[in-house]
Simulated scan of single mutants.
Amino acid sequence: MSQPFWKTKSLEEMSAAEWESLCDGCGKCCLAKLEDEDTGEIHWTSVACRLFNPKTCRCRDYQNRLAKVSDCVQLTPENVRTLTWLPSTCAYRLVAHGEDLPDWHPLVSGDRQSVHRAGISVKGRITASESDLDEPEDYFDHMLEREP
């Protein structure tokens, strides 16, 4: 039996469809994160991007997100190796570092809902949308003690 593509190809060698399929749909990258200016430490919040659909854990306008959300970051083979805020469970990060995908990842389980059943996604844990908050200080009320 042949190996799955994420074990045989580098991120740069993957097709667009393979690259997109690495996303497990957890929604963690769509949460607002606060960076401590002194230490560089990342603090997670339960505030979602204004385009985030909390029911599906997907972007409402994925194709146009970069034009509509000025601080949306398009993941690339280059930046997934250096972005400090990617979740520890992120498939892009795992594969970039030569690690395998966990059993709950949809590419392994064959089920798009497995990430939610495993409690890895932010489904049911969003407390606000960035469009609901007026001031930067408002995010502090939604800070999490650790990565979701």
Rank of each mutant, 00 (worst) to 15 (best):
R117H: 13
A96Y: 09
M143L: 15
H142V: 10
E37A: 05
V73T: 15
M1D: 12
D111Q: 12
C30E: 07
G98A: 13
F52N: 09
T76D: 09
C57P: 05
E130N: 00
R125T: 00
Q63C: 00
L107D: 07
H97Q: 15
A91T: 09
P4M: 00
P87H: 07
P148A: 02
C90G: 12
D100F: 05
E78T: 14
L51P: 01
C59W: 05
L51T: 01
T8V: 14
V47W: 07
K68I: 12
W6E: 04
K55C: 03
D71H: 13
D141T: 06
W19D: 11
R81G: 04
K9R: 13
S2F: 03
V122S: 02
R93Y: 15
C57G: 06
E135Y: 13
S114E: 14
S46R: 06
L107W: 04
H105Q: 12
V122L: 02
R112W: 06
H43V: 14
D132V: 01
L75R: 11
W104Q: 10
S131R: 14
T56D: 01
T45S: 11
D141M: 07
L86I: 11
C59D: 08
N79L: 11
I120G: 02
P136F: 13
L83M: 15
T56G: 00
K33V: 04
Q74R: 05
F5L: 00
H97G: 14
W85I: 04
L75A: 10
Q113F: 08
G124D: 06
L107Q: 04
V122K: 00
T127L: 12
P136R: 13
E35F: 00
R125A: 00
H116R: 14
C26A: 15
S114I: 07
P87E: 10
N64H: 15
S10E: 08
V108I: 05
P4C: 01
V47G: 09
S2V: 07
D111N: 15
E20G: 05
K7E: 13
